[in-house]
Structures are given as structure tokens and as C-alpha cells.
């Protein structure tokens, strides 16, 4: 494992910590898209189907369990917690799941590395992860007064895939035969979706003003 991969994973992990912190500290999930959280949970469930059948390392297994556990915990907080669930911006979080899930499912059926159920579902999770942030970005644009933790959460999520791109470049040059077109192209698309957000995030940070996305 190289430094970019480790940094990417740690940033990803940190994004969960920041999100749980925001929800718990403020007892509010205002500005957080439940749709994006549900899509991420679906992504992890589909990707980690091999959790118990394919052992790579203690690190991998632990991280997978943490990602799955945290995702379900966030869903519980947003949908089941008495105090928190009433703060959910239901009327604003209107993105349709099917616009994302259906094209990703079709693409996974058409473009994959092997025609096996496991491989197709895994590929679907890669495609879905690339676009799962869209409901959150739309909600962010509609939210006035984005709080710092929410802004930081989205920034960390974007940074994580960016660091993975560096990891793939590193692996390409250090490991023979390391070619992963599906993962690379999806990861690049995923990172590009954040560029606009990054621009405004960094601008607000440099000018020391509150983050606001133009609508």
C-alpha cells in the first residue's frame, strides 16, 4: 500500500467522522442529503459482497466493516433518531434515485470485466459511487448558510477520490500489468464532479468567508 492510497482511505474515514460529528454535535442533519447517504450505503453493500469470502488483509476487512457500519449508523440517525430525523430537509432533497441507479445498472450490465453476478454488482457499485454525490451537491446549492462541518465533509469526500487517482498513477508505474479502466475512468468522473465545489470551497477558505454555492 502506498502513501496516496493510505491518505485516501484516511481522508475517506475522516469524512465519516466529520459527518457523524456534525449530526451528533448539532443534533441536526440539516444540509445532508439522505439520498446520497442511501446511495453510498448501497455502494458499500454491493462492493463488499466478498467481505467474508475474499480475505485480502486485516486492514481491508476492518475498513470495509467500518464503512458499512458507519453508513448504516448514519441512515439510522437520519431516518430513525427522534430528534435528528425532523431536521432532515425532505422538501429540498428531491433528486430521483432512479436517474442514477438505472443508468449505472445498465452500464454495469454492458461494461464489466467478467459476466458473473458478483463482478457485475461490483462494477455497478463503482459506477454508482462516481455519481452518488449529486443529490448532496444539489442540496448544498439549495441550502443557505452551509455550516463548516457539512462543507468539510463534502470536501473530504472529493479529496478521497482525488488521492485514489494519485494511488492509481503510482500503482501503474510500480506494479506490472496494473490496468483498471473501469475504476480509473469512474474515479476521474467522480473527482471531476467535485471541481466546481472545490473552487468555491477554496475561495471561501482563502477569503475567510462562509461557504455559499451560487444557484
Amino acid at each position: 500500500m502506498n502513501i496516496f492510497r493510505l491518505a485516501g482511505d484516511m481522508v475517506h474515514l475522516l469524512s465519516f467522522v466529520v459527518l457523524v460529528l456534525k449530526i451528533n454535535a448539532t443534533k441536526s442533519c440539516r444540509g445532508i442529503s439522505l439520498k446520497t447517504q442511501e446511495l453510498y450505503t448501497l455502494v458499500f453493500v454491493c462492493r463488499y459482497l466478498d467481505l467474508f469470502s475474499n480475505f485480502i488483509s486485516m486492514y481491508n476487512t476492518t475498513m470495509k466493516i467500518v464503512f458499512l457500519g458507519t453508513s448504516f449508523a448514519i441512515l439510522y440517525l437520519m431516518r430513525g433518531h427522534k430528534v435528528i430525523k425532523v431536521t432532515y430537509d425532505r422538501e429540498q432533497d428531491t433528486f430521483r434515485y432512479l436517474f442514477l441507479v438505472l443508468p449505472c445498472a445498465l452500464l454495469a450490465l454492458l461494461i464489466h470485466n467478467a459476466w458473473t453476478p458478483f463482478e457485475v454488482v461490483w462494477t455497478f457499485s463503482i459506477y454508482l459511487e462516481a455519481v452518488a454525490i449529486l443529490p448532496q451537491l444539489v442540496l448544498l446549492q439549495r441550502t443557505q448558510n452551509i455550516d463548516n462541518l457539512t462543507g468539510n465533509y463534502v470536501f473530504l469526500l472529493g479529496l478521497y477520490r482525488g488521492l485514489y487517482i494519485l494511488n492509481w498513477i503510482y500503482r501503474y508505474f510500480t506494479e506490472p500489468h496494473y490496468i483498471q479502466w473501469i475504476v480509473w475512468i469512474s474515479g476521474i468522473v467522480q473527482t471531476i464532479l467535485y471541481l466546481d465545489f472545490f473552487y468555491y470551497y477554496i475561495k471561501s477558505w482563502k477569503n475567510n468567508v462562509k461557504l455559499a454555492l451560487p444557484s
Binding site: M63, N113, H177
Partner: peptide
Amino acid sequence: LVGLNAKDEL
């Protein structure tokens, strides 16, 4: 070699 994808990543 375009083999199975990198299942060693998260």
C-alpha cells in the same frame, strides 16, 4: 493484462 478489477482497494 486487463484482469479482474482491484478488489484490494476500498
